[in-house]
Amino acid sequence: MARSLANTVLKGIIGSHHRAATCRTLCQQGTIAYYSVSSDAGTHDDFKSISKLADSDISLKDVVEKDVKENPVMIYMKGIPEAPACGFSSLAVRVLKAHGVPIASRNILEDQELKSGVKAFSHWPTFPQIFINGEFIGGSDIILNMHQSGELTEKLKGATTSNTVKRDD
């Protein structure tokens, strides 16, 4: 469990834009060493070895909570934004990209425990899963629907101009 958790974090959040800020924050927590993330960080060997997470009590819930708190637009998906591994994930990324916002992501195909953890966190059975300002938005159908209705534009305004975290309790 601990090792897998470490992998979860070490595989890192892959942003379509530079996500150095996220990494730095993780670093400040003293959980992992600083690293810079490139677009192929998810598979880079450099990210597989360093870890103090094995000794920490960070849980998957904490990982997800942190992700969605620190990243205004967070997507848990199959594949990565540059190469989605599923049509639904691809659709969600395309919708978000159309709004020109920075997207942080994790590839749930790389980690079964992360996948289960995210599902448990959101009580949502499928992927992708999108969080905006810490609020669970839904999957690809919902994001497309909100895009078409104009609601997404409103939601994302807050995501780019404010760090306010709203909870979907």
Partner: peptide, 10 residues
């Protein structure tokens, strides 16, 4: 709300 409606189906 939309999310709740989807949750009901799920």
């Amino acid at each position: 709300k939309l999310l709740e409606r989807h949750r009901m189906v799920n």
